[in-house]
């Protein structure tokens, strides 16, 4: 019964699965779900054979675009995104690591102008050995994955 509730289907919308448990709240913020009025379900610390525990997001009647999905890559590169219509998966979208990131993430360098003046952050994304890091357009310093904080 419990298990059934966890995977309950939606009629139309987006299901984002296989999120690391510690990424859920970041992704809620990245996708702007805090202010979204669609009906949605969040699950966290669910059992996962592949990941140990995982998080899942279901959003009714909202169909996430590719550029929104790519933002997820910063925190959950292994996420799977399914677009649902009439209870059926009509499209599986791959999370792709974007080439640039504008806003959302803070530069980890406290001496960077983006942390001193109201300047929107801008990074080029680097991927080495599966690790994602961001190179700041302004201070040219690198922000590593374990240091990534979101702009509030």
């Amino acid at each position: 019964m419990e298990q059934k509730f966890e995977v309950r289907a939606i009629e139309n919308g987006t299901v984002i699965d296989h999120l690391p448990s510690d990424s859920l709240f970041k992704i809620i913020y990245l996708l702007g779900l805090e202010n979204d009025t669609h009906r949605m379900t969040f699950g966290n610390n669910l059992e996962s054979k592949r990941m140990g525990t995982k998080a899942i997001i279901k959003i009714t009647d909202r169909f996430c675009q590719q550029d929104e999905i790519n933002r997820i890559a910063l925190f959950a590169p292994m996420a799977s995104v399914n677009i649902i219509r009439d209870f059926k998966v009509v499209e599986k979208r791959q999370v792709e690591v974007p080439r640039t990131i504008e806003g959302f993430v803070k530069c980890a360098n406290p001496k960077c102008i983006t942390n001193v003046e109201p300047v929107k952050t801008s990074f080029t994304v680097q991927e080495t050995d599966g690790e994602i890091s961001l190179v700041c357009k302004y201070c040219e310093k690198t922000t590593h994955q374990d240091n990534m904080k979101l702009v509030k």
Binding site: C112, I113, K137, Y138, C139, E140
Partner: peptide, 22 residues
């Protein structure tokens, strides 16, 4: 401040030469 010159270059109407940013 690091990155100040890059930012100035975006705002300024005229060319910016960085003589050192942190």
């Amino acid at each position: 401040i690091e990155g100040a010159a890059r930012y100035a270059g975006e705002i300024s109407r005229v060319p910016v030469v960085n003589a050192g940013d942190g």
